[in-house]
Write a protein that binds this DNA or RNA. Structure first.
Lengths: 109, 109
DNA sequence: TCCACTACCTAGCGATACTATGTACCAGTA
DNA sequence: TACTGGTACATAGTATCGCTAGGTAGTGGA
């Protein structure tokens, strides 16, 4: 992963995962492959699991264990009310930053 | 500063400062007030100086010391060729992330 | 003399993504 | 049986970066 991308993902990756969970619960392995499918090809598996532990401890998601046909049981995460609130704030923060950066980009050329 | 914003600035603040420097050299105190003027009202002064040290050590900027009428001498930073290259990469990384997030936002509602 | 503004700098801290590695379950196959 | 590969989760250690909380120094005005 590029150094820039690694740093830029700090803070945004959590929002990305929360966004992925809106409406459709998912488990860690699934989230990793989802991210890879969306172009985040170099996200480390361990990064995702560590993030999931964090958002669970922050109380942003509910967890349910479900058996899998193909391996160890899955931990399915679903966004709860607090998680939705956090996601709202994330979009607000993102919008602010995004607008400032687009202005800067325009000004630059 | 909000926790989310603090984390999201990681990686982007460097790009923001490099963008501010395109075409118009500036010194640290000036950059801090510029940032404040653009809405980043809570950027800590120390953060800016530490960042400037970093981008200088990475060779992204040239530095020139100039006397000031109102205080200690200023260190004026100007973007060099390598800095412009880094800024290009920054915009690429930003664009990638930005597009993914806008897709996610659309999908979410 | 004291305060405010200008201007720069730094040590220590907290949060987060990455690296590297380990564990475990199952199916197919040689 | 033994091996391989895919599924699925977990974590210790590291590096980076922004913030906190100070400090130093020059100038001018109350």
């Amino acid at each position: 992963m590029g150094r820039q991308m690694t740093e830029m993902l700090k803070g945004t990756l959590e929002g990305i995962v929360l966004a992925l969970l809106t409406g459709k619960p998912a488990y860690g392995y699934e989230i990793t492959t989802l991210l890879r499918g969306q172009g985040f090809t170099e996200i480390a598996e361990g990064t995702v699991y560590a993030l999931l532990v964090r958002i669970e401890q922050k109380g942003l998601v509910d967890v349910e264990k479900r058996p899998s046909e193909k391996g160890p049981p899955r931990k399915v995460y679903s966004l709860n009310e607090q998680g939705e609130k956090e996601l709202d704030e994330f979009w607000n923060t993102w919008s602010f930053l995004s607008e400032r950066l687009e202005q800067l980009r325009k000004a630059g050329k």
